[in-house]
């Protein structure tokens, strides 16, 4: 399965049509996208332009109406439900706008969750947690229940949770939408740093001008189509 691939994410003529009370809504209307390993890409566009839909299609959370998605050179629509779940667990880190964390668990436990599912050794787990907590700067909150953290802190834990299992791809749908600008900037810097250090591929959607500026590649979506695609 570990075949050579040039693009870590590739879509071909990707379409998604929703039924809204019998009226077809074309959320994504033929997206051809190629993202190289290690890119730090922002997905921007007006509300309703199809950002979330596109990211869900790429993550394999949603099924496309037409077109194909390859992740690490594998076509995900050919995978079974259970294979896809495992693939997601091992290769994609998610950061959502909110409700990222398991509310009853502590910071440490939330970060540990996926590694436990993967069956990572306890020692390895602890090393990685220690390291990532340093990076996100929440060492002292290690054993705090996540619902008792601020929104910014929670999003940082979400990043740590997404990254600690060392997936190849991080998908983040409006990770800063609920944060003030200081926190947003802070979070983005952290993500950028990690991108730099680990070489993970980042794809995040945003409305935030500030966030767009920090990206190395900016894709603008409009009416479900790529309107603009620039590398800096």
């Amino acid at each position: 399965m570990n075949q050579e691939f040039k693009d870590i994410i590739r879509t071909e003529n990707l379409k998604k049509i929703y039924e809204d009370n019998g009226v077809p809504v074309e959320a994504v209307r033929g997206v051809d996208l190629k993202i190289k390993p290690g890119e730090f890409t922002a997905l921007a566009g007006p509300s309703g332009s199809g950002k979330t839909t596109l990211m869900n299609l790429i993550a394999g959370l949603d099924k496309s109406s037409q077109g194909k998605v390859w992740l690490k050179g594998q076509e995900i629509s050919k995978m079974s439900g259970s294979q896809l779940t495992d693939f997601r667990r091992d290769n994609i880190g998610f950061i959502f706008q909110a409700y990222n964390l398991i509310p009853v668990l502590t910071v440490k436990e939330n970060i540990e969750y996926i590694m436990l599912l993967q069956g990572v050794d306890k020692q390895v787990r602890n090393e990685r947690i220690c390291k990532i907590l340093n990076i996100i700067g929440l060492n002292e909150f290690e054993n705090r229940i996540v619902t008792k953290l601020s929104g910014g802190q929670q999003q940082r834990v979400a990043i740590a949770r997404a990254m600690v299992s060392q997936p190849a791809i991080i998908l983040a749908d409006e990770p800063t939408a609920n944060l003030d600008s200081a926190n947003s900037s802070n979070l983005l810097d952290m993500m950028h740093e990690l991108n730099h250090e680990t070489g993970m591929t980042f794809l995040f959607s945003t409305h935030d001008q500030l966030v767009m500026e920090k990206a190395t590649r900016l894709i603008i979506l409009k009416d479900g189509k790529i309107f603009d695609d620039k590398r800096k």
Binding site: A59, D86, F94, Y99, I102, Y113, L117
Partner: peptide, 13 residues
């Protein structure tokens, strides 16, 4: 529901 959605998204069977 959101919690279960999250759990499933991040790879819980």
């Amino acid at each position: 529901q959101r919690e279960f959605g999250l759990l499933k998204a991040i790879g819980t069977k």
